[in-house]
Design a protein around this nucleic acid. Structure first.
Lengths: 197, 197
DNA sequence: ATTATCTATAGATCTATAGATAATGC
DNA sequence: ATTATCTATAGATCTATAGATAATGC
């Protein structure tokens, strides 16, 4: 039971960490702010995670397990069927905090010695590969729009990330799911839309 | 002459600031690090810019004047002809520091009370509008790919930003200009490429 | 006079370590 | 015993202010 309670506490702390990072980034986040949010002192928090960096790593690993589909069917890495990608983006549009957390982290991660840098580098390699596999499974070696799955995958990921920044900065002005749908349309090529006969 | 030398000094400081922000982000950047790079003490630096935030603002404004094309012909806001966009991306691929500076800042800017937030929000509004105008001038109200200039503009900007992150994290793995070219190809539609007759 | 820099320093924070104290589980 | 938290604190930084000192321009 102590073990169970402890795990709950850790989860609570990680949740609070996500929020604080969304608000201030990792460098701007303080252990004190996270601790306060879960009703602990900063030193009390360090009982669960020995250092600030350990806390970040825990959060990232958790996220990894999370979206790499922790078991629920998926042949390869990024087991996102194409149609589902659209819903993922819609879902994200309803969770600004989490999107903001990861957008802030991604931004910071390109700076030197950032503890999330390796995580993101590895992750993007995986995500691109998974995406390419999905696209290949669905369309073969050439998408209707003319690109190879690999070349389309980089763009797919770029569009998702890029849209998030524009949307976070100005949610009123940017229809993130709509824009993403537009992009999927481009990938799928001229096809049998209403206009082209 | 004092005035001139002073301006030089300020420019030097701003250049150093770009570098330090590229390495540590704005929150992680310290006045001391910038000062050291120009051979001043931290207090000496504050003679030129009264606060850390003032320094950031100066850097951003400078950049603004810079890419909003400080005078050299351009009808509307973002006066980038489409063909030139590709070269811009190629050019950026040769200036990792500046790309990293702005990618780090963009990431941080989505966090609360960030001094660059308003700058980026305003800027993206402008850039989207400028891009849309360019596209409309070139293609009319519907691009070959089927999108309106406005809808294509959001994607264009998203792809540029998103590619930068992937490229910064793993330059070997991501051919930024190539991918951007692919995207332009999608926008331009099936058209008269080598394959489609 | 004004400008450019420096030394000294106040005042805030932050992370992390040490060591108590209380509560829980065998 | 082990786990959960707390108080006390060392040790680093950081920004920004105050006030000297030297150099430059009228």
């Amino acid at each position: 039971m102590a073990r169970a309670r402890s795990e709950e506490r850790r989860a609570e702390i990680m949740r609070a960490t996500l929020e604080v990072i969304a608000e201030r980034g990792y460098r701007g986040a303080t252990l004190g702010a996270v601790a306060e949010r879960v009703g602990l002192t900063q030193q009390g928090l360090l009982h669960y995670f020995p250092t600030k960096e350990a806390l970040l790593v825990a959060v990232l690993e958790d996220r990894d397990r999370w979206d790499t589909g922790g078991g629920r069917g998926g042949d390869e890495e990024g087991a996102w069927r194409l149609e589902l990608l659209g819903s993922l983006v819609e879902y994200n549009a309803m969770r600004p905090v989490i999107v903001q957390t990861f957008s802030a982290l991604l931004g910071e991660s390109v700076t030197e010695d950032h503890p999330a840098r390796e995580f993101f580098t590895r992750r993007y390699t995986q995500v691109r590969a998974g995406m390419a596999a999905t696209l290949r499974a669905e369309y073969g070696d050439t998408l209707p729009g003319g690109l190879s799955p690999e070349r389309a995958a980089v763009l797919l990921v770029a569009v998702m990330d890029g849209l998030q920044y524009q949307w976070l900065l100005d949610p009123e002005a940017v229809d993130m799911p709509g824009a993403f749908g537009d992009f999927l349309g481009l990938l799928k090529g001229p096809s049998d839309g209403p206009e082209a006969p």
